[in-house]
Simulated assay, not measured.
Amino acid sequence: MNLYDLKNKLLLLNDLIYYDENEFLREKCADENVLKKIIEKFEEKLETISNYKREDQIFIYGSIGNLYRIIGNTTSAIECLEYAVSLSEYNSTWGSVKI
């Protein structure tokens, strides 16, 4: 599955993600199995991450981090999101990509 198709898979989540009023409007997923499958597809991209432009690398790590956050895996979410931020900061420092 290419990255474009994977980005389109994220659109499916619009129908599955909701804000749980009983847990301070925390994002939840009506079907975590679908979410976990999408995470797996994104993680497959990590095997060839160096083949992607820096912007796409940031998108991949950021997406994985946000999806982990939604299913409650905060440790993995923080790791991925921090790495996405570090990639972004690297780009800003070197000026190769304007973010």
Rank of each mutant, 00 (worst) to 15 (best):
E43A: 01
I78R: 12
E47R: 08
K37V: 09
A77S: 15
D5W: 00
S50I: 11
L3C: 07
N14M: 00
S86P: 02
I64V: 04
Y4S: 12
T48K: 14
E44H: 08
Y83A: 02
E89Q: 07
S86R: 11
F24H: 08
Y19K: 14
C29F: 08
N91R: 10
K37P: 01
E82Q: 15
F59K: 10
G95T: 14
N51L: 13
L35N: 04
T93E: 15
V34R: 05
N33C: 03
G72W: 11
C29D: 10
S96L: 12
L46R: 01
K36M: 09
K37W: 02
E43D: 02
L12N: 10
I39H: 03
Y52A: 02
N22I: 03
E89I: 13
R54A: 08
V97L: 12
T93P: 03
C80K: 15
E23H: 02
G62R: 12
Y18P: 05
G72D: 04
K53H: 10
Y83S: 06
L11S: 09
D31P: 02
A30H: 09
S86I: 04
S50L: 11
L81W: 04
R69Q: 11
K36I: 11
S92W: 03
L35G: 06
K7T: 03
V85W: 12
E79H: 05
E79K: 15
S92A: 14
I58G: 05
S92T: 13
K45E: 06
L3D: 02
E47S: 05
A30G: 04
I60M: 06
G65C: 05
E89W: 00
I70W: 05
K53D: 15
I58T: 09
I99S: 12
D5C: 07
E32W: 00
R54E: 09
K45W: 03
L87Q: 03
N22F: 08
W94E: 13
A84S: 07
T75F: 12
L67W: 02
D15W: 00
T93A: 14
E79T: 12
G62W: 04
N22D: 09
K36W: 00
W94R: 15
I78W: 05
W94N: 15
S50R: 13
A84Y: 10
R69H: 13
I78H: 06
I71L: 07
V85E: 14
E44L: 13
T48I: 10
M1K: 12
A77F: 12
T74A: 07
K37Y: 09
V34M: 07
Y61K: 13
I49R: 11
W94K: 15
L35W: 01
K41C: 09
G72Q: 09
W94M: 14
T74S: 11
K9W: 02
L3R: 05
L81T: 14
E27R: 09
I60S: 07
I38S: 00
Y83H: 11
D20G: 10
Y83F: 15
